[in-house]
Write a protein that binds this DNA or RNA. Structure first.
Lengths: 232, 232
DNA sequence: CGTTGAATTGATTACTTTCAATGACCGTGG
DNA sequence: CCACGGTCATTGAAAGTAATCAATTCAACG
C-alpha cells in the first residue's frame, strides 16, 4: 500500500457522489478531518475480519471484495465494491471489522478516520444522511443476494451477476473484469468448476466474450432472460 | 386486524428494548407521536410490497415474516420477526415497502406513523441511534443469511436456523413454532419436501421433538455440530 | 523455456428437486 | 357426532443440478 498522502476533497472527481456531496466548499475546507489518499495493488489486504475498526474507505478506482472466511477455509464474498462505493463503515457501530477487505485490482482509495467521521456525522446532518443512505443501500443489496441465492439456480445467478456488473460501467462496451473464477464462485455460492463450465457455455452461445481481465456482453437481452429464469 | 387503540408506551413491557428505550418518562410523554396498539391474527397481511410506506411496526407478541415474492410466484422469506423487533422502517428512506409483511401467529403490534417517527428521530438523537442500530442489525443478519445460503448445505442451514430460533426464547424449553414447512422452505431456499425429510430425519435422530406449533430441541449440541458442518 | 497458479474438461458421486401418491389434521355442515 | 373437504405434511421414486475428484491445458512471468 502506498504511503498515504493528504487528499484534496474539494477537487475530487468523485466529490459529487461521495458522502461529502451535500457540503459546500467552505464546509469541505473545515471538515475537521484528514482524508488520506491511498494507492493499492491487486490482492492487497486493506483490513481483516476482527481487526480493530479504525478507518472507512471510499473506493475511487479499482475493485474491492468484502469476504467472510469460514472456519473450514471456505470463503463467501459479501460485497463487491466499485468506484464511488463506501465501505468499512460498519466500524462506526462496532469495534471490529466483520469482513476481510481485499483489493482485486490496482486501485485508489480515500481513507477516513472513523472517530473523526463519527464526529463529523454528528455535526453535519448531510453527512449523516449520506452514510445512512449507504447503509440502506447495503441492506437492499444484501437482501437481493439472499433472493438470488435462495431462489435461483446457478445459471440464472451468474447471468444476474454479469448484468449487474455491467451496470456499474454504463458507458463501456468492454468491461474491466478482474474477478477470478474462484471469486465468481465465492460470490455465487458455487464451485469453481461449475462457474467455469457456465462461463464456457455462455461464451459458446455467443452471449459474451472474454479477454485478459476484460469482458464484453454480447447479448444482454438473452442474459436477462436467463437471469429471470425459474427457480431452483 | 383489530381497531387500533392508542398505546401506552410509558408502561409498555417492551419499553426497555424498544427504540424509545433511551427516553425518560417526560420525553416519552411528549413524544409528539401517536403509537397505535394493534392485534393481528395468523396469516394477516400488514402491508404488501409496493404499498406506500406509512407505518413502521414494533412486534410485541407473535411472529411476522417479511417476504419477497418473485414474478413466478416463488417466495423468499427475508426476515422472521419476533417480540421486540422493529420492521417496516425502510419506509423512512423509501416511498414504498419492499416486502410483504405477513403475520404467522396471533400477535400484538405497535404501529408508528413514519412521518412522525422521522421527525422524532431528527429531534431525539437517542431514537435516531436506536433506529440506526436496528438497521445495522438487519444488515448483519442479512449478511449471515448470504453466508448460510452461499456456503452451507441444506441440513446445516436447517440446523443453524432452528438454533437461532431457539435463541429468541432463551428461557423456554418448549418453543412456539408457528412456521409451516413451506415457510421453512422459503426461508432456507429449499423445497418443502426436502425440509420435511430433514425434519423427519432430525426427529428420528432424537435431536428434536415437535407438536402442534411447538418445538423442543433435545440436542442443541449435536445440532450445533450439524450446523457447523462443511460446505456444499 | 520451465514453472506456477488459474482455468478447463471429463467422469463420477452426492445432493436436491420434482412428480406423484398417501396420510394426518382440522373445521364445517349435515 | 361423524363424514366430508381442504390444507398441510410425509414418503417414495425418478430426474436434474451441482460438487468432487482427477487430469490436462493455458497463460503469465521470470
Amino acid at each position: 500500500m502506498s504511503v498515504p498522502r493528504l487528499s484534496d476533497c474539494l477537487h475530487c472527481r468523485m466529490r459529487g457522489e461521495s458522502i461529502f456531496a451535500g457540503l459546500n466548499p467552505a464546509e469541505l475546507c473545515t471538515l475537521g478531518m484528514e482524508v488520506q489518499d491511498i494507492d493499492c495493488a491487486a490482492g492487497e489486504v486493506l483490513y481483516r475480519s476482527g481487526d480493530p475498526a479504525r478507518h472507512a474507505y471510499t473506493l475511487r478506482e479499482g475493485a474491492v471484495k468484502l469476504v467472510k472466511t469460514l472456519s473450514n477455509g471456505q470463503q463467501v464474498i459479501l460485497r463487491l465494491l466499485h468506484h464511488g462505493d463506501l465501505f468499512g463503515f460498519e466500524g462506526l457501530r462496532e469495534k471490529e471489522h466483520r469482513h476481510d477487505a481485499i483489493s482485486i485490482a490496482p486501485g485508489k482509495l480515500c481513507r477516513l478516520d472513523l472517530v473523526e467521521l463519527q464526529r463529523l456525522s454528528e455535526r453535519q446532518p448531510k453527512v449523516r444522511e449520506a452514510i445512512f443512505q449507504r447503509w440502506q443501500d447495503a441492506l437492499r443489496a444484501s437482501e437481493e443476494r439472499v433472493v438470488e441465492l435462495g431462489a435461483k439456480k446457478a445459471e440464472a445467478r451468474l447471468a444476474t451477476f454479469l448484468l449487474q456488473w455491467a451496470q456499474r460501467y454504463p458507458q463501456l462496451r468492454v468491461l474491466p473484469f478482474p474477478l477470478t473464477r474462484q471469486d465468481l464462485a465465492d460470490f455465487l455460492g458455487l464451485s469453481v468448476e461449475h462457474v467455469s463450465r457456465l462461463m464456457a457455455e455462455f461464451k459458446r452461445q455467443k452471449l459474451l466474450q472474454e479477454a485478459r481481465n476484460q469482458l464484453e456482453i454480447l447479448s444482454p437481452q438473452r442474459l436477462q432472460e436467463i437471469a429471470a429464469a425459474k427457480s431452483d
